[in-house]
Design a protein around this nucleic acid. Structure first.
Lengths: 338, 338
DNA sequence: TTGTACGCGTTATCAC
DNA sequence: GTGATAACGCGTACAA
């Protein structure tokens, strides 16, 4: 209906040259008041806005930042995106979100797509499958091209770039500390397989804390699930065979599920069994009883990642110096602990 | 380190013209086997990929679709995005997500930014503030420019475009029907102010259903909150002053909150009071007791919206015919109803 | 079979 | 003060 108006259109209409229009709209001193007024009025009337694509082509800067996350229906990742958006928008950047859906293939495809000029830099968190395959060539290619990259939460040592993570071991430590201080002795851990970097760190923190408090480590008190999916039977047999008085869960869902199960076994929460879950999301707040949680500070993480990325994007600096920001987790105490 | 390689680079290196390279890479019949082989091999070696920006400028097609949502930390919207992503990626499109954060200003800014060439079309859901202000000029400007637009969930009659919505009235009807069939008589509604299109439709469906089942409408059984935020005191006085045996809530959070309150008043759920909540999200599944919910089919909604948009984007068709897809909600029965 | 020229919309440089 | 020209990277109609 009202096709977009260009510099050329204005120039033709006002019978001046394209460059005059361009300068006038940038309020250049070279142009006379008269013509500037005329051109600016006309531009406003027809609501002229420069074409981003053309500007990008010219500047070799898109003002877009690409975000690759494993899953968008996941509270933690959405809070990170919110943080990224917040900071990026304030700096005049758009956020291009792509979801790998926890798959290697989609991660590669999405990155290749965006890397071909659509974005000025990446912020990403690795998909489960990528971590399993342990194959990071697609990421190496991107960084080798000189495209700035910031990884968050699920990171790898194999790539040299800026990173922002939570001290997951410390989070687990905090949880165990809380349990110990409220008199718990048989502290269980429900987690996933070790290929997830976060799972590994949390397990480590759990073990370290036990040894710190002189509690013998019993491998039978660690339940390792092969994936993020809840396997009811595994939970069932675990709680039927093990005697525990405190449970640390690697995510909310595991914790909620376990609490329900325990509730059905006529045990009291938190008196008989206490619970703490990682990732302070909606479920923790609204669970019955509400769940004591280790907050991951996703929004802060997003802001920090965006800050680091934009810093790199906007400095011509050729020196390759990378840093890793480690955020401290926080224990949010609720009704599932004493 | 390895700056991006262009057609020009290849041409210079192989001492042919740029267009020869371009044609060779598109496997044009015009080019001899020999040169094609040579060029293709070279391109692969240096991992040549066409610059998206340049292609976009040329084609006046970006292969990006812009999505504007009110809030990303909201399960419903993320499921919609998942649906959009799924369909769009399959069709070779990227998804550019911007969050209005329920604000008019950010909605306008984001749309203007994206509208200037960054995207081929919009998929959006209105922010609360925009619906309150009832000002849609920014959207009209976009559609007037001929940029395809699909609105979902929170839509308005004031804009002529494709839409995809859930039959919210029908959803409320289903809920009331369920209550009535299990013998409930005093059916309450907890909702938000009417400026939210969805809230209005749901209230309408609730009233229609009551009249259909010959239950007198009592305005005192409708609790209207001014925003999506939970106001504990309002809930408190409501349940202390009103005699109810069933509650329909316009969202999960309200429902969970109300259930907790009622639980504390020593009433049994669902025997004494039954609950149904809109938007079947994580909270509903994991609540105690689990919450019977009206599923909004967000993912389907996203796919449908993306389908409609890409259809419009890819057809040159000048005729302006718009359609509205109405999805049917589904009642997911859980433990909070008889 | 290969190359030239042009246009997409913008900006920067330089000439008039 | 204003305008012509080149360049960003690509694709394509047309010329050689």
């Amino acid at each position: 209906m009202k096709p977009k108006i260009t510099l050329k259109d204005i120039a033709r209409e006002l019978e001046v040259s394209i460059s005059t229009v361009s300068k006038a709209l940038k309020n250049s001193e070279e142009i006379s008041r008269d013509t500037k007024d005329k051109i600016q009025a006309f531009a406003k009337l027809y609501n002229y806005k420069p074409n981003n694509i053309a500007v990008s082509l010219k500047n070799r800067r898109t003002k877009n930042i690409g975000v690759i996350i494993p899953d968008i229906v996941h509270h933690f990742f959405t809070t990170v995106i919110r943080g990224i958006e917040k900071y990026a928008n304030a700096k005049g950047y758009n956020v291009l979100v792509c979801v790998s859906n926890e798959g290697y293939e989609r991660e590669v495809i999405n990155m290749e797509l965006l890397a071909n000029g659509s974005i000025d830099g990446f912020i990403m968190s690795l998909s489960t499958e990528t971590q399993q395959k342990n194959d990071y060539n697609h990421i190496k290619e991107v960084t080798d091209q000189g495209i700035p990259m910031v990884m968050f939460d699920r990171v790898t040592d194999r790539i040299n770039c800026d990173k922002v993570v939570i001290d997951d071991a410390q989070g687990a430590f905090l949880a165990v500390k809380k349990f110990v201080e409220s008199g718990k002795k048989k502290i269980a851990l429900i987690t996933t397989d070790d290929y997830l970097s976060v799972g590994k760190d949390r397990t480590e923190g759990y073990k370290k804390a036990l040894s710190h408090y002189n509690i013998p480590l019993e491998e039978s008190l660690i339940l390792k699930l092969p994936s993020m999916e809840v396997e009811a039977s595994a939970f069932d047999t675990f709680f039927k065979t093990q005697e525990v008085d405190a449970v640390l869960c690697v995510n909310e869902i595991f914790a909620i599920h376990a609490m329900r199960l325990v509730h059905g076994m006529n045990k009291r929460i938190p008196e008989d069994i206490s619970f703490i879950g990682f990732t302070d999301g909606l479920l923790s707040k609204f669970a019955m009883p509400s769940l004591t949680a280790i907050a991951q500070h996703g929004e802060l993480m997003g802001e920090e990642a965006a800050r680091m990325l934009i810093e790199k994007v906007e400095t011509e600096n050729e020196e390759e110096t990378f840093s890793t920001t480690v955020l401290e987790p926080t224990l949010i105490e609720r009704a599932s602990t004493l």
